[in-house]
Design a protein around this nucleic acid. Structure first.
Lengths: 154, 154
DNA sequence: CGGAATCCGGAATGATACTG
DNA sequence: CAGTATCATTCCGGATTCCG
């Protein structure tokens, strides 16, 4: 099944791999669900709380971590005639996770959806055909998974 | 910064979203590191353990979960003249997570790498130019992030 | 080598209540 | 609304030991 050649260790130890650092930040259930909600436009504390049904203490801590990590920006927002409220919006760092979260959603649709139609799908603006996560070369053309090669720095 | 319109709730509740199900399976630090190692060819218990430096109990539990979830396949492997050993290889379900893990690696390189050259990069076979995670339409042409539209089933 | 069983201490969770 | 404070409970990581 696996065409991957046997190895005893990975070429890059987890400590020096940026994937491990990324996992330290977002490799958490609540954190990922917060980012998911943020990508759909949720910005306020109580809205996150209603969306996630998680303890407020947990939400508070995760939001703080995400702000410190630079994925969320906390600022105060005042709608006219109302008092100011804090809101959490995605920074460009957080926004750039979008392809990954959409990719993971589509992976879930394909493997965990039990044959049902996905509740949400993604298309190109002005088109009706679906898009999917993939790899592209410098010219923006798709590279098939079996064409991918890992190159060590050296 | 964020062009995402304000929303009070996400269009799909987390319970019925396959992203949430996916997060339940892989939204865990050790699990993601196991999958990372597996994608680089690690297959055996003690090799995973040396790679991750995690308690054997933890590794044992995570491997079992991944097998039950269908991401890893456990089978017995005998090299000639030696006794049979169990080995864990990625199923096609697990292999299909590759774009996501590579995408997350590149996200980490871009935002967490502190300006250093990434220790590992990815190219198309027979080429030297880098590839990156992106979205493509049905014809395999890239779709820019600002061109992505979410469509609800209905 | 590849686990399972046991145990412990600390961290996270979750409920509830309180405050500006 | 947007948090903090408190607290019981549960869970998890880590070490150790044992076994086929």
């Amino acid at each position: 099944m696996s065409q991957i050649p046997l190895a005893r260790r990975s070429p890059v130890p987890p400590e020096s791999c940026n994937l491990a650092k990324a996992i330290d930040i977002i490799g958490d259930r609540w954190t990922l669900l917060i980012l998911r909600a943020a990508l759909y436009g949720v910005r306020r504390f109580d809205d996150f709380q209603a969306e996630l049904s998680c303890p407020r203490t947990v939400l508070s801590g995760r939001l703080k971590n995400l702000v410190e990590a630079g994925l969320l920006t906390k600022r105060s927002y005042k709608s006219p005639g109302k008092r100011a409220r804090p809101e959490y919006t995605l920074s460009s760092m957080g926004l750039s996770l979008r392809p990954i979260l959409i990719g993971l959603t589509q992976w879930g649709d394909a493997w965990l959806g039990q044959g049902e139609t996905p509740p949400i799908s993604f298309t190109k603006a002005g088109s009706k055909s679906a898009i999917r996560a993939a790899f592209v070369d410098l010219e923006g053309r798709e590279v098939r998974p079996d064409q991918i090669r890992a190159v060590l720095r050296g």
